[in-house]
């Protein structure tokens, strides 16, 4: 389990990194925390000709408030920093609740926020979180920079809207809307494993207590983070009674997801868990939005 030969660059500025990306493009892989990439290389499942290591670029490791009341997280910010950030706990409680589910402390010490987003593992929590909250990804290259909405960023299995010369440098999290509630529910085989199924829920209740803008995003049940639009449609404009939530959860399981089978869970079991977790997440999120303690 040794990787094949590769060239290694460790730029100390973003400009230098973007220059290297422009030169090597398709043949290059960006090394962030290395928690997925290094294992993949050691298994010889990936054999990049060039590694561009971002670990020596300090400006990519930041957590800042935004003018809109949200947060900006630099791509090289370690999971542990996000987990322990008071700003995140205050402005992005759903993210705060999500972080402990990401692997183990050892992995969270090395793994990075941007790395997880760019890797786009369909079983990972952060891509689903980012879709639930309508986050945006900052992609930079020598050609310039652009903000990509999470809904447009994740395009398939381990694939994103990034161009070969682009690097994810930051992620922008909007402020929590007024009268909103959230919930994160996950089931995994062992503590710290990739989710069999996890759901990130964010919704708003209007003045009459009816659901508005329901964002229910799943991981582990598709080729990327799956946004449950059919379930959201069931809830839209409805007061979230137990019956309505049950109906929405059932639609999420039947219409929104198309889970795969693997050695840990069959498609049928995953679909069943989508139903159970959607119900739990919607119930908790609605309660939070209504100002109840959860």
């Amino acid at each position: 389990m040794k990787p094949p030969p590769f060239a290694y660059h460790a730029p100390t500025t973003l400009d230098e990194a973007l220059q290297l990306m422009a030169e090597h493009g398709y043949g290059a892989k960006v090394l962030a925390g290395g928690q997925s990439l290094i294992a993949t290389m050691n298994f010889r499942l990936a054999a990049p000709a060039v590694l561009i290591d971002l670990n020596k670029i300090p400006e990519l490791s930041i957590i800042q408030p935004t003018a809109e009341g949200g947060a900006l997280v630099g791509a090289m910010t370690r999971h542990v920093q996000v987990e322990q950030s008071e700003l995140i706990a205050r402005t992005a409680p759903l993210l705060h609740a999500t972080m402990p589910h990401i692997a183990h402390p050892q992995i969270r010490n090395r793994g990075t926020f941007g790395g997880s987003i760019a890797h786009a593992d369909p079983a990972a929590e952060l891509p689903a979180f980012l879709r639930a909250v309508r986050g945006q990804v900052l992609a930079q290259s020598r050609r310039g920079q652009r903000w990509i909405d999470a809904d447009d960023f994740f395009i398939g299995l381990f694939s994103t809207a990034l161009e070969p010369d682009e690097i994810v440098t930051a992620v922008r999290l909007p402020a929590m809307p007024a009268r909103s509630g959230w919930s994160m529910q996950e089931l995994s085989r062992r503590h710290g494993d990739f989710a069999l199924v996890a759901v990130e829920a964010l919704l708003t209740l209007d003045a009459d207590g009816a659901c508005d803008d329901v964002r229910l995003a799943f991981c582990g049940v598709g080729e990327g983070p799956v946004l449950a639009t059919a379930a959201a449609a069931v809830l839209q404009g409805q007061r979230p009674t137990a019956e309505v939530i049950e109906a929405a959860a059932a639609i999420a399981a039947s219409d929104d997801v198309d889970p795969h089978s693997d050695v840990h869970a069959t498609s049928a079991y995953r679909r069943h868990l989508v139903d159970v977790l959607a119900k739990r997440a919607l119930t908790a999120a609605c309660a939070r939005a209504a100002g109840e303690e959860v």
Binding site: R189, R190, H191, G192, D193, F194, D262, V263, H264
Partner: peptide, 10 residues
């Protein structure tokens, strides 16, 4: 990743 040993958490 696929052969799951119990950890101290389990």
């Amino acid at each position: 990743m696929d052969y799951l040993l119990p950890t101290s958490m389990e």
